[in-house]
Design a protein around this nucleic acid. Sequence first.
DNA 1: GGTAGACCTGGACGC
DNA 2: GCGTCCAGGTCTACC
Length: 295
Amino acid sequence: MRLTLSACPPFSLSAVVRSHGWADLLPFGRDAGTGELTRVERLASGRVVEMFVQEEASGVSVEVHDRLSGAEHEEVAHKVEWMLGLSQDFSAFYALAREESRLAYVEEGARGRILRSSTLFEDVVKTILTTNTRWTGTIRMVKALVSQFGTSLPADPTRRAFPTPDQLAATDERTLRSATRLGYRAPYMLELARSVTASTLDLEALKTAGIPTTQLRKRLLALKGVGDYAAANLLILLGRYDFVPVDSWAIKMVSHEWHSGEPVGRAEIEAAFERWGEWKGLAYWFWDWSYEGEE
DNA sequence: GGTAGACCTGGACGC
DNA sequence: GCGTCCAGGTCTACC
């Protein structure tokens, strides 16, 4: 099955893939040579398929090496549209960015879209797994979760989809800790998965919730393991850019960019991007930092 | 509302 | 090979 999807211009698949590290986390994959993005996905029907996404003239093509039903076809299209943010329009952000040399490149490079997972559940799990650990630790923990609990791709059982809330909710903390080395994050994962499974939490509804960003942020902060940084990060994935995800990297960058290396706090980070208003988070995300750190 | 300490893990480092 | 230290956000208890 092959389908083509159009994107709101300007669009660049490689820009979405390079927007952050999500493409390095299973069940995403990529071909360095062709720039193709792949993903093992479990559909609502329970079938597990692999998607091959390639850039086309006005958007992307999606190929699945299976025959799909009409509903499955529609589901694949809907999920790819969400993951790549194909309908997102950044013209207002670009108009502001043209006046700032550190962001002058964003429009020409079609930057702005940030790769998302197909479900907010997966993005919340992955975001929690970025906290209080190094990136290599995040990769390891996500890999362990997928390989231990995800459903196999029939054509290649070594490859698996991201586990569903049901699949994670069915395990216990002891197993989760020993099988995935999530450490203290294990109970957070379990509580999240069990809340979704029990329908006491409708995470996916937050994708389209027409509520103010501050309320959306409160909902995210109510999740165990989601603090200020994780909530701001998730808001950006949801297309809300009113908050800056302040982590140790942001502190280091702002310190060297505007404070001569002197220690700064959350207030200084927020102040540094205050003028970008509703685009604050995106301005931070794509800021062309002159300081690259000691590494 | 602000702050200190605990939470876990893997990697770096010294011996 | 072993022990120690460190980085990385969030939570909880306490003030």
